[in-house]
C-alpha cells in the first residue's frame, strides 16, 4: 500500500472514530446532578482501610447490654452462641467438619470493618438502621472481645476498629484474579 493510501485510510479511520466519539457523547444525560452531601444518609459503605467509618465510639460492656436490649439473642442466641441464625461468638476449627465447617467472625472473617458495615446496614433484622453509630461501635467491641480478638476494655472507634487483627486474614485465595 502506498504512503498516500495509508494516509487516506488513516484519515478515514480518524473520521470514523470522531463520529463514533460524537455519538458516544450524545448520551441522554438524564441523571440529576447530586452532591455527596445529599448522598450522605445512604453512603454507609465502610471500606477495609477504615474509610467512611463515622465518628463515635463504644465499649464491650456497653455492647453486651445492647445485645440483650436490642433483641440480638432472638436470632443469634444468648451471648452470641447461636440460634436460628449464625453463631457470633466461637472459634471452631475450619477443618473439623471439612468444607462444611462453620464460618464465624473469629475463625473466618478477614476484615473487622465487615462487622461494623453489616451491623449498621442490616441489624437488628426487624429494625435495620435504627442503631446509633456509638451503638454499632459498642456491639462490634462486644463481639470482638467475646471472640478474644480485642482486650475486653478496648474502645472501638474509627481509629481502633480497622486495626483489629483477624486471624484468618491471610487464608484466602483469589479465584479469578484476571477479572479484577
Amino acid at each position: 500500500m502506498s504512503m498516500f493510501r495509508l494516509l487516506v485510510a488513516g484519515l478515514f479511520v480518524a473520521l470514523a472514530f470522531d463520529t463514533a466519539t460524537a455519538i458516544a457523547d450524545d448520551s441522554p444525560h438524564l441523571g440529576k446532578p447530586i452532591s455527596e452531601v445529599d448522598i450522605k444518609r445512604w453512603d454507609i459503605t465502610v471500606l477495609p482501610d477504615g474509610s467512611n467509618l463515622p465518628p463515635g465510639s463504644g465499649t464491650a460492656a456497653q455492647g453486651a447490654k445492647l445485645y440483650v436490649d436490642k433483641g440480638c439473642s432472638l436470632c443469634h442466641g444468648e451471648n452470641g452462641k447461636g440460634g436460628p441464625n449464625p453463631t457470633l461468638v466461637g472459634n471452631p476449627s475450619l477443618t473439623a467438619d471439612g468444607i462444611a465447617s462453620p464460618k464465624t467472625i473469629a475463625n473466618f472473617w478477614a476484615w473487622p470493618t465487615t462487622l461494623f458495615d453489616y451491623i449498621r446496614r442490616a441489624m437488628p433484622w426487624h429494625a435495620p438502621q435504627t442503631l446509633s453509630d456509638d451503638e454499632v461501635y459498642a456491639l462490634c467491641a462486644y463481639l470482638f472481645a467475646a471472640n478474644n480478638l480485642i482486650p475486653v476494655n478496648e474502645e472501638m472507634n474509627a481509629q481502633t476498629l480497622p486495626k483489629v487483627n483477624m486471624p484468618n486474614h491471610d487464608n484466602f485465595i483469589i479465584k479469578f484474579p484476571d477479572r479484577i
Binding site: A100, K103, F172, I173, K175, P177
Partner: peptide, 15 residues
C-alpha cells in the same frame, strides 16, 4: 467465599 479442604478459602469466586 467457599471453604476448601485444608481450611483455606476462595474469595472473589465471581463466575
Amino acid at each position: 467465599s467457599p471453604l476448601l479442604p485444608g481450611g483455606k478459602a476462595y474469595k472473589f469466586y465471581f463466575v
